[in-house]
């Protein structure tokens, strides 16, 4: 288990760094796909089968395809050099991110012995589509409905953003 975990975690972090640091957006997108895939592996390790599948299907499948389409459309314009900006801001940003990580580690360290000891016992159907579906459609029905509305709104928004006017104005 540990080996799988290390490999997946390493791939995850490495591809993440790659996403953030590449200048060619296409490579960044590809790196993100790798990130998503390794995350899917981690989800499997955490007994979240449905979510792993959804991750690959939705995220890696649909969302990243959208990204690649747009990158293709943009062509050369999508080239993304590293940012300029004041060095103060840049150091501040790095400091903030590192601080965040450090804080989390500290918190975890404080709680490591007590709360994070043993994971709960779960049945085999934990994380299965049936279980997720049942929960989604009973206890969290409202979230389900609202999510669907959000998606509808996004679709409409996308159409609106994409329409051109007849006179040739983009």
């Amino acid at each position: 288990m540990w080996i799988v975990w290390f490999l997946a975690a390493g791939a995850c972090l490495g591809s993440g760094i790659a996403v953030v640091s590449m200048t060619n957006p296409f490579y960044s997108a590809l790196a993100l796909i790798g990130n998503l895939a390794s995350l899917a592996v981690l989800y499997l390790l955490l007994a979240a089968e449905f979510l792993a599948a959804a991750q690959v299907l939705v995220y890696a499948g649909a969302v990243m395809v959208m990204f690649v389409f747009v990158i293709a459309y943009l062509g050369g314009r999508a080239d993304a050099p590293w940012a300029g900006g004041s060095p103060v801001m840049q150091t501040a940003a790095v400091v903030a991110a590192v601080a965040l990580l450090v804080e989390v580690v500290v918190v975890l360290g404080l709680a490591w012995g007590d709360e994070l000891k043993d994971p709960a016992q779960v049945s085999d159907s934990f994380g299965s589509p049936a279980a997720i579906g049942e929960l989604f459609l009973t206890d969290h029905l409202l979230a389900f409905e609202i999510t669907s509305i959000v998606l509808l709104v996004a679709a409409i928004g996308g159409v609106v953003l994409g329409t051109t006017h007849e006179k040739g104005r983009p």
Partner: peptide, 17 residues
Amino acid sequence: LRTYALAIAFSVCVLIV
């Protein structure tokens, strides 16, 4: 945008503490 993001990140750090 980036300044705003920076501000939010800092605030989150402080809030966690």
